[in-house]
Design a protein around this nucleic acid. Structure first.
Lengths: 338, 338
DNA sequence: ATTGGCACTCAATCGCTGAGAGTGCTAGCC
DNA sequence: GGCTAGCACTCTCAGCGATTGAGTGCCAAT
């Protein structure tokens, strides 16, 4: 039976451990958190909490530390949402409003999040899958090549080189460019294949092979399996609290350089709910001692990508949640109004 | 007096220390490197080398380790250039030839360099300062804004948002776009200000304010002080050999997230010579125990940017130099033929 | 100039001990 | 029945001294 006071004890253990990173004993709790009760009583409660798997003792004569399950209960039931201070809010807006383009927005977001939480921040660029085409540009390059540039309504710019079978004249290219834009402007990326389906057929015969190559590249590398761009900052934070992490940081740092892993960490971009994965709740091995707080961002109606922070399981969840939500709200506004 | 044998001893100390990371004693050298001489003789030589400042003993009864000055002499006089193996060369070309665009080239280069050297790799995008304009594109965005996209002949694409005083019609924008391209295509970035100097004056009066804003942004943020883009990979390598670095890695990791610092590390982009900065030769405090091997890349006639690796002073210089030069040659070819 | 011999220094390791923190248990109290 | 005081027990950690061993510097001999 987990009664009110036991929850209070658990909360005290989590909070103390988050700030001190050392096991907490019954006396400290009786003195500083659950006043009016003796340490012995706390000990009984702790024994119960340990039976239920919420806390463990690293060794016989040390205090207790929370388990993953304990943190889970803490974030689900016990932590209150603490909004950011006014100073923090205005720091966010002044810093973000200086951004000059999307790259800059993403970079600033990541640095900001890392600074606010003192953890590693991960920010995903607005996913192309969820954006619409704003403009398509074709630029001739030397050696029979064409650069295809696609601009999304989120401000994201992607380019690809295409090697074309025949040299294309300026007029022909201009014609193809206009056809592409007429067909695609304002169209969601997912709908582009349908929109350009019969476009190639209407091109002059002598340029058709090249047009086919260009459209094929456009479809394949920009729409069917577009690269997700991700920015990471704050790896230096890892070092400062190195001891906080498991055996070694190396696997974690390696993971942070792998986009695929990062995407998994952030979760599905479709949902904009705040997710917290604690320790073993992350499937990835390199993250045994780490938690991830992530959320989606975008307009009210649609999430365009996700962002979040990665830190030790004994991170300050209340802070992290507040920072992640606030930053997400801010970036969402910037990106969607652009 | 530093005679031939003393140099041999120094080389032996550097090589042993690079592979073992432990101080080397006189006996080990006599046994494995300078055969036919007794340890006592080596000791005399070592004492001389220590007097000259090439090596030091961490404490009375340990072996010697090289000083920065010792490494310097080693790389200047003693190390032979060892070309990469055939397997390594073909690994480089197959990996790099899969790149689909400039971002991909840069990313692959960085990862490759990190992997080849087992160190942190830093690669700078082709500098705009040293490229020519291939194409300029103007795209209308919602809320009275225009996105200016500039494509350089290196394949680099940069964009900026401009808030314009008046909404611009499609025809006006198209007109401005054509004027800009006529004026700038093929022109070196440094010469663009002159090329567009009297362009605005010829625009229709009612669109002139907006055109001015657009050209101003173009000049200021893309040409006068363009952002240098830099990619870093291999931070995980730092962890694996953490003990190799000075007191703490945190400042180094922080430095790796600062573009300004990275640019300083790489050195001036104008020269394409291979530079080696050993320990205290780097002016930056965070890099007391680290060395940087960097070089420029580009065509035979012109360097467009730099790349290099950062590692502990006791890195394998021979390997690093070989890898950095080989990769630079390869990337230079890819980027300039694009 | 080189070498063998030798005394000396110093970091690292091991084993030991005492202190301290914290627990679990039991018996008593409200 | 729940709470508390007391107490024995366990285990970690810091400190200490002795030992070990690698490596040096110096000197006298070749």
């Amino acid at each position: 039976m987990i009664d009110e006071r036991k929850l209070h004890v658990l909360r005290a253990i989590v909070e103390e451990f988050v700030s001190s990173h050392e096991p907490i004993g019954s006396k400290a709790i009786a003195d500083r958190h659950v006043k009016g009760v003796s340490p012995a009583t706390i000990r009984n409660d702790m024994a119960a909490l340990e039976d239920e798997g919420y806390i463990v003792a690293p060794h016989t004569s040390a205090g207790r530390i929370p388990t993953d399950k304990g943190y889970r209960l803490f974030v689900d039931k016990l932590s209150e949402v603490k909004p950011l201070s006014h100073a923090e809010r205005s720091a966010i807006s002044t810093f973000m409003d200086q951004a000059v383009d999307l790259d800059d927005v993403m970079l600033r977001t990541t640095k900001l999040l890392a600074q606010l939480t003192h953890q590693v921040a991960i920010v995903q660029y607005p996913s192309l899958q969820l954006s619409a085409v704003r403009h398509i540009e074709l630029v001739t390059m030397p050696a029979r090549r064409v650069m295809v540039v696609v601009i999304a309504d989120s401000g994201r710019v992607e380019q690809r080189m295409v090697e074309v079978p025949q040299e294309l004249g300026a007029v022909t290219l201009e014609d193809l460019r206009q056809r592409l834009n007429r067909a695609c402007e304002g169209v969601l990326f997912v709908d582009v294949p349908a929109a350009v389906a019969d476009l190639v057929a209407s091109v002059d015969v002598e340029a058709r092979a090249s047009a086919t190559a260009i459209v094929a590249t456009l479809l394949e590398s920009l729409i069917e399996r577009p690269e997700e761009r991700i920015v990471v900052a704050g790896a230096a934070q890892l070092m400062k609290r190195e001891a906080d992490y498991g055996p070694s940081l190396a696997p974690l740092l390696e993971a942070l350089e792998e986009n695929v892993v990062l995407l998994k960490l952030l979760g599905e971009a479709a949902h904009d709910d705040l997710q917290i994965r604690i320790g073993s709740e992350n499937v990835i091995d390199a993250l045994l001692g780490t938690s991830v707080v992530s959320t989606g961002y975008g307009s009210q109606t649609q999430t365009v990508a996700r962002l979040g922070v990665v830190g030790p399981t004994h991170m300050n969840y209340v802070n992290s949640i507040a920072a992640v939500s606030a930053v997400a709200r801010y970036v969402g506004r910037i990106v969607t109004e652009a």
